[in-house]
């Protein structure tokens, strides 16, 4: 019998494969190690990230689901809540003890109730609605707040580059 974390990850993988939610594809990078996943996220419709397909990497701790996984986009991305190296800064990925931005209540932190699917859905909604209050990428947050048009242009350029399309 495999470990608890492994079983849960397998269950989630199965669930995601059988009933894939819209705009999300996720699974282990290879079948030998269920603790590193790859995910593809579609940019939410009606936003400047529309049509984009963003690859990301999820790394699960051994004690998943008691501790949250780490998520990092593996493509270039320009967003107030994503560090420039792709790490996602979202409150449900923080375990209750830590608070990098010093604003989150423990109610919105990680708990075993969360799952890969919920994380990815949260990330999609985060793409749609950046939270400029807790910016991981200050430049992006500033641009998003002060010059929305420029931010959207930049985001569209990014979307095109993820699709391997030439810039406009």
């Amino acid at each position: 019998m495999a470990g608890r974390a492994l079983k849960r990850l397998m269950a989630e993988y199965k669930q995601l494969t059988l009933n894939p939610p819209e705009g999300i594809i996720a699974g282990p990078t290879n079948e030998e190690n269920f603790f590193e996943w790859e995910a593809l996220i579609m940019g939410p419709e009606g936003t400047c990230f529309e049509c984009g397909v963003f690859p990301a990497k999820l790394v699960f701790p051994t004690d998943y689901p008691l501790s949250p996984p780490k998520m990092q986009f593996t493509c270039d991305i320009f967003h107030p809540n994503i560090y420039s190296d792709g790490r996602v800064c979202i409150s449900i990925l923080h375990s209750p003890g830590e608070d990098p931005m010093g604003y989150e209540s423990s109610a919105e932190r990680w708990s075993p109730v969360q799952s890969v699917e919920k994380i990815l859905l949260s990330v999609i909604s985060m793409l749609a609605e950046p939270n400029a209050e807790s910016s991981a990428n200050v430049d992006a947050a500033k641009l998003w707040r002060d010059n929305r048009a420029q931010f959207e242009r930049q985001a569209r350029r990014l979307v095109r580059s993820t699709l391997n399309l030439p810039p406009l």
């Binding site: 495999a2 470990g3 492994l6 397998m10 079948e31 030998e32 190690n33 269920f34 603790f35 051994t62």
Partner: peptide, 9 residues
């Protein structure tokens, strides 16, 4: 040995 917990195989 830690990896034992992670890998299904």
């Amino acid at each position: 040995v830690d990896y034992m917990e992670r890998s299904p195989i």
